[in-house]
């Protein structure tokens, strides 16, 4: 998968993952607060933020694997930083990344419109929920509650990963830092035309 990637792209992907690994760790704190207030569903409200790097990396680099790899690397870096969730987090990261990647793959990595980005965020929601259902034993909860959790997470994925990811990437393109990437070039064309 990586053979077609330039080293520059791989390193930028890693650095994106590192920055968001830190953001992710910070959001765990916020998640715990919401968790305390609302119970399990509290996490689902902000669950989308944990998929955002997939959306940003794919939107900027636009190569097969960007969504999957960035989320996996972010999880690996979280483990390296000492997130106590430990090595199983890498597995969660891979599964979340696959969810977004599946949506981009369905467009043959050609379409990066707002709707596709939101759908990719929701893809991560679906995959991560299925995984959580097994590992965290959601089966013990009342079906109504579990359904509510699922829909909250779906919306969170669309908004906090899809829309917010798009918003931040475009803000980044304006700084000129992405000039050698597809998104930066697209932005430059739009400005000059």
């Amino acid at each position: 998968m990586l053979a077609k990637w330039k080293l520059r792209e791989v390193i930028v992907l890693s650095v994106l993952a590192v920055v968001f690994a830190v953001v992710y760790l910070l959001f765990v704190q916020l998640g715990n607060v919401l968790f305390g207030l609302f119970g399990l569903i509290g996490y689902d409200i902000i669950f989308g933020i944990w998929f955002i790097v997939s959306i940003i990396a794919a939107y900027i680099i636009r190569k097969p694997g960007a969504a999957f790899l960035s989320e996996t690397v972010a999880a690996t870096v979280e483990v390296m930083l000492g997130n106590a969730v430990g090595p199983q987090l890498i597995l969660s990261g891979m599964i979340q990344g696959l969810g977004a990647e599946a949506v981009f793959a369905a467009t043959k990595w050609k379409n990066y419109s707002t709707w596709v980005l939101m759908a990719a965020g929701m893809g991560s929601s679906v995959f991560s929920f299925a995984w959580g259902f097994y590992v965290s034993g959601f089966a013990a909860l009342s079906p109504g509650y579990v359904t509510a959790m699922f829909f909250v997470r779906l919306v969170s994925g669309a908004l906090l990963a899809g829309l917010l990811g798009k918003y931040l990437s475009e803000g980044l393109a304006r700084t000129g830092a992405l000039n050698s990437f597809p998104l930066g070039k697209e932005h430059k064309r739009n400005v000059t035309v």
């Binding site: 330039k6 080293l7 520059r8 791989v10 390193i11 930028v12 890693s14 650095v15 994106l16 590192v18 920055v19 931040l168 980044l172 700084t175 000129g176 830092a177 992405l178 050698s180």
Partner: peptide
């Protein structure tokens, strides 16, 4: 991010 991306390109 902007700072990190430019540094990343130089590192590569």
């Amino acid at each position: 991010l902007a700072g990190a991306i430019r540094k990343a390109e130089r590192t590569a």
